[in-house]
Amino acid sequence: MGTVRVKVEKAVLPGIGVRHDLATSSGRRIGVITHRSGQRDLIVYDPDDPDESSDTVPLTDDEADALAVILDASRVLSQLAGLHDQVSGALVIEQVPVRPGSPFVGRPLGDTQARTRTGASIVAVLRRGEALPSPGPDFTFAAGDLVVVVGTREGVDGVTDILAHPAPPGRAG
């Protein structure tokens, strides 16, 4: 199908969290506010005033997961490979395989220290055709998982390296 390019705007909301917005091909704007607490709000902007929201829908973790399933997260994630943030440089979304020889097969995501070590985020795992969004630090990897990573090119490459090789001596895995 090729690469899908969508302009995603990110805004830090001091004391609140982060807002991500995008304009649809029909000209409408939608967004998600991720609060520091983890709460997410879906925002639909007013078609007559794109700076004002016409509706805000708070989502629990289960509701956010259900919405991802409704939107067919595995299809959407596969199509988002190569997404670029046109404002502040390249933002890469890539699926990284957990190969059978990976040192992290059977180990929790938190052991990778991926975010701390690379700045990239693991936002989902695709396992046997099922999308598992927002895995926590206790999520255990299995051989064959596809890990969806978001970050700079260097950050995504760093996560790929982490999942393929053990940590250097003296560092946690």
Rank of each mutant, 00 (worst) to 15 (best):
Met1His: 12
Arg5Thr: 12
Val6Glu: 05
Lys7Ile: 10
Lys7Ala: 15
Val8Phe: 09
Lys10Asn: 10
Lys10Met: 07
Pro14Ala: 15
Gly15Trp: 14
Ile16Ala: 09
Gly17Thr: 06
Arg19Lys: 13
Arg19Trp: 13
His20Val: 13
Thr24Lys: 11
Ser25Cys: 05
Ser25Gln: 10
Ser26Arg: 11
Gly27Val: 03
Arg29Met: 09
Gly31Leu: 09
Val32Asp: 02
Thr34His: 00
His35Met: 05
Arg36Tyr: 13
Gly38Cys: 07
Arg40Met: 15
Leu42Asn: 04
Leu42Arg: 07
Leu42His: 07
Tyr45Met: 06
Tyr45Ser: 02
Tyr45Pro: 00
Tyr45Gln: 01
Pro50Asn: 07
Asp51Glu: 14
Glu52Asp: 11
Glu52Gly: 00
Asp55Tyr: 03
Val57Ser: 06
Pro58Tyr: 01
Leu59Cys: 04
Leu59Phe: 11
Asp62Leu: 15
Glu63Ser: 13
Asp65Gly: 08
Asp65Ala: 15
Ala66Thr: 14
Leu67Pro: 01
Ala68Leu: 08
Ala68Thr: 04
Val69Asp: 15
Leu71Ser: 11
Leu71Gly: 10
Ala73Glu: 14
Ala73Met: 05
Ala73Val: 01
Ser74Pro: 04
Arg75Cys: 05
Leu77Met: 12
Ser78Leu: 12
Gln79Leu: 12
Leu83Phe: 00
Gln86Leu: 11
Gln86Pro: 04
Val87Gly: 05
Ser88Met: 04
Ser88His: 13
Gly89Ile: 08
Val92Glu: 13
Gln95Pro: 00
Pro97Tyr: 03
Arg99Trp: 01
Pro100Cys: 03
Gly101Ala: 14
Ser102Cys: 07
Ser102Ala: 05
Phe104Gly: 00
Phe104Ala: 01
Val105Trp: 07
Gly106Tyr: 09
Arg107Asn: 06
Arg107Phe: 14
Pro108Tyr: 00
Leu109Arg: 15
Leu109Glu: 04
Asp111Thr: 08
Asp111Trp: 15
Thr112Phe: 08
Arg115His: 08
Arg115Ser: 09
Thr116Pro: 03
Arg117Ala: 14
Arg117Glu: 11
Arg117Met: 12
Ala120Glu: 07
Ile122Gln: 02
Ile122Phe: 02
Ala124Pro: 03
Ala124Trp: 03
Ala124Arg: 05
Ala124Glu: 05
Leu126Ala: 00
Glu130Thr: 15
Ala131Ser: 15
Pro133Thr: 02
Pro133Met: 01
Gly136Trp: 00
Phe139Thr: 06
Thr140Ser: 07
Ala142Phe: 05
Ala143Gln: 03
Gly144Ile: 11
Leu146Thr: 02
Leu146Asp: 11
Val149Ala: 03
Val149Gln: 01
Gly151Ser: 04
Arg153Glu: 07
Arg153Gln: 09
Val156Asp: 04
Val156Gln: 04
Ala164Val: 04
His165Ala: 12
Ala167Asp: 09
Pro169Lys: 15
Gly170His: 05
Gly170Ile: 08
Ala172Pro: 08
Gly173Ser: 14
